[in-house]
Nucleic acid binder design. Structure first.
Lengths: 128, 128
DNA sequence: CTTGACCCTCCAGTGACTGGAAGGACTATC
DNA sequence: GATAGTCCTTCCAGTCACTGGAGGGTCAAG
């Protein structure tokens, strides 16, 4: 399989696939003309990576998860730990965004949004 | 005022303040020895920027907001538009994170987290 | 034999800082 | 006046996970 076939099948852009090779997440073969040749195992790994990225795991987390996936002697506790840590970060992030959301919603609601210059949004930013 | 005084008063690191000057958000004076000299108006702007950044506005949004703030003839509608667009982005982001959160919570709950290799998290990533 | 769609590598840019090196300036103490 | 310590400066590199583009080789169809 060539890179664009893999891109189609995994939903990952060719650029991203090349990048994943560059940082050592996959090691596709090469044909004589220099083109990358992807085995099923490469495609499988890329799909795995795509899904992990969709869940928001960092590339380093993905590397760890892939290593755990390939390690038949892994402990599920190790996987769970990675996922739990990530979940905690996501929940922190959600809380942070919700706090911004609450403030912004309030300010937007208070703002007349007309031709006049008076604006509670700017007043808030200016005075804290 | 020197940079570290301003950093203390605004809560922004000196590095960030220098960066804001570099990208043209502020234009502090210079004393003979080359040190930056911050007027009250600079400190005020930096505090404004700090609060806007806390609300998650991008630097370019901050630049726009600062310009609107300084424009006595602004229309509050323009400010409101910036804030509403940002709020929309935040709400998209929250929804995306909540979707990750839901999936991850489910997977983490299903995972035994013991010494055995069987792991629903990896199974999910491997098969979608 | 040319066209167009592939593929390759390498370099630069994104956003918003952050860390560190190398060196000048100021303040306090001896 | 020397020294130590803290401040200030600039400049360069790195972060994260790609993404865009230049410049050039390869392949299949007509």
């Amino acid at each position: 399989m060539n890179i664009s076939d893999v891109a189609r099948d995994t939903g990952l852009p060719p650029k991203t696939i090349r990048y994943y090779e560059e940082i050592g997440l996959i090691r596709p073969l090469r044909s004589e003309n220099g083109y990358r040749v992807f085995r099923d195992s490469d495609v499988h790994k890329l799909a795995f990576l795509g899904r992990a990225r969709t869940l928001g795991f960092s590339i380093e987390d993905c590397r760890t998860l892939l290593a755990l996936y390939e390690d038949q002697d892994r402990a599920s506790a190790d996987v769970k730990q990675v996922a739990q840590d990530h979940l905690d970060k996501i929940e922190d992030k959600i809380a942070q965004l919700q706090s911004m959301q609450a403030t912004l919603k309030h300010l937007v609601r208070e703002c007349a949004g007309d031709n006049r210059p008076d604006c509670p949004i700017l007043s808030d930013l200016a005075r804290g």
